[in-house]
Design a protein around this nucleic acid. Structure first.
Lengths: 113, 113
DNA sequence: TAGTATTATTCAAATATTCCAATATTTGAA
DNA sequence: TTCAAATATTGGAATATTTGAATAATACTA
């Protein structure tokens, strides 16, 4: 449910080591702030800041249990991305024709005409 | 061919509006720097900087035709990611059980015990 | 109601990113 | 050989991101 225009913003939000780990944890199930704090050994304020950012972008949400905030994954794009990131590729993409030694070839555009 | 450890770095590199557009262009075929410059109406030095960054991370490469550098896509993860970004999702992920009005529910962890 | 656990917010310092202008480098062409 | 086209690199200013410390807000519990 991300607008096409926001997708780069969302990628930027995801591309952070701690936020990525938070998303991976939440993809396994609900977690409250202090459990994340304990699990990652990161200061509470920092965890909250990242959760807040993730929420502002609609990637996660929470429900409440007493004083606990139970965060969970909301954006369906995330699990697909996490899976894609786990995939490993054997080969580079095939390169366009060029001499493999000199790395010279012809440009297909018309800049050369 | 990205090491698991570098994937976040790579995501960060991709998560930039101009770099994303460059990758999209290159996914359609080889492009030289001045064609990109013209196409995007961005200063040459800036295009070069972004291409250089993309290359340092192994996402693209180039071959040479005279004074032209013919850039092309190298990292097989990119087309998959671009396709995933095009996909649109109809529904949010199913939320864990909680009252939809009060947004209250029970935390499954043992923090509550 | 007072105290405490849980989480959020604000502020400021440190660091990183982005872009432009200027300059350097490389290579084909005259 | 010069000259010019194509691209890369460098330095610096503006801006954004990240983090910790301190503090605020909220809601159980005794």
């Amino acid at each position: 449910m991300i607008s096409q225009a926001d997708k780069i913003e969302v990628l930027k939000v995801i591309a952070h080591p701690l936020r990525m780990r938070i998303l991976e944890e939440l993809s396994k199930g609900v977690k409250c702030v202090s459990d994340l704090e304990e699990f990652f050994e990161i200061r509470q304020s920092n965890i909250s800041q990242h959760l807040s950012l993730l929420r502002r972008h609609g990637l996660i949400d929470f429900y409440i249990d007493g004083r606990l905030r139970c965060y969970f994954l909301r954006e369906p794009f995330i699990p697909d991305l996490l899976e894609l990131l786990r995939k490993d590729y054997e080969e580079d993409l095939p390169a366009p024709a060029c001499c493999p030694v000199t790395r010279r070839g012809k440009y297909p555009g018309d800049r050369r005409n």
